[in-house]
Design a protein around this nucleic acid. Sequence first.
DNA 1: TGCATCATGTAATCAGTTACATGATTTT
DNA 2: AAAATCATGTAACTGATTACATGATGCA
Lengths: 195, 195
Amino acid sequence: MALEHAILVSLLEQPGSGYELSRRFERSIGHFWTATHQQIYRVLRRMEHEGRLAVRTVPQHGRPDKNEYSVTASGRTALAHWLHEPIEPESLRHDLAVKIRGAAFDEPAALIDEVARHHRAHHERLARYLAGELRDFTGPDAPTPLDPGRELQHVVLRGGIAFERMTIAWLDDVLATLHRLSAASDTAPPARDEG
Amino acid sequence: MALEHAILVSLLEQPGSGYELSRRFERSIGHFWTATHQQIYRVLRRMEHEGRLAVRTVPQHGRPDKNEYSVTASGRTALAHWLHEPIEPESLRHDLAVKIRGAAFDEPAALIDEVARHHRAHHERLARYLAGELRDFTGPDAPTPLDPGRELQHVVLRGGIAFERMTIAWLDDVLATLHRLSAASDTAPPARDEG
DNA sequence: TGCATCATGTAATCAGTTACATGATTTT
DNA sequence: AAAATCATGTAACTGATTACATGATGCA
């Protein structure tokens, strides 16, 4: 399970509280791993208990105290160990693909709006990623000498961008297919009586 | 949760036993949803209990009996209902991306073999998908008049193909980046003493 | 004789989601 | 006065994985 490791990576990049981590999981880390705050708090406590993390209460002015976590030597070792362990290439889990195959047993046209909505969502995500890339890596305000850590962050972000672009192109294909099928069911042999 | 719905789709395409389903989940359905046999058997029993599926014991010659499941009217309704419900566009969960960012806190070169292994695995998967496409959809032996169901299966498979191609291209990018970084750490400022 | 395939399951555990809860401060 | 943000949690549940278990047939 990688949530634990994603947390180690994020806290090595920058120590922070559970709340801050859950923010990060909505942004950068969240590009390839999601987690809710409940899950994060639970795992943080467990990892602190196991000695992978150290916690320190930071008083703040006009805000509740926060528990700032950082990675211990033991946590670093655990991460290094995991990095050297082979993992299985993962397969995606794509609800939408299930729906598309399911549409054969319903009215394909009914899926068009849903697919179009996903198309828009991926467009928005792509725009956000591209803005982030410009801001942090390729834009004029980005720190010029990229250290290894930032190079690696960038290549991961490029993966996210490639994924969104591929998805958008595929959803275009899906939409064209659905339109074709619903046009065919309007003219040719009427399979049902709603045509 | 889509396992339930993936099972409905698969059983509508063709009734079958838990064992047969778990085979299918290693192949076609498995392109976008995975499940182990334990999970499948459990969900099958639950769905039968809820009236979504009907079960029938099929005696076989020289083999154990099998429980063949098929979708009931209620199951069909449940699927149709789900098809009309909007779902959230999903974000991927990519362990390898976590590892890549984690490599900043270890030796980037150590990841090269792992990434190369994933690269090969995705190549093999792509080859399998392309062979399947030729066999079932675009080859000379494929049934020529594609019905809506097969059109939809094909567009989903094209999604799988696009995903694998995108992933392979990205892993090339990752490998190039890792090589660049390990070459840099060999020549320029030695960050550690293993140079 | 031993291994692979067909066929189905239990038990334990781990991971992830949803709902609910609290309480301060800051902004509208 | 109400809503949003910061900050942390409990409880219940659902979903998924891992390990273990059984037993037949067919093939080498």
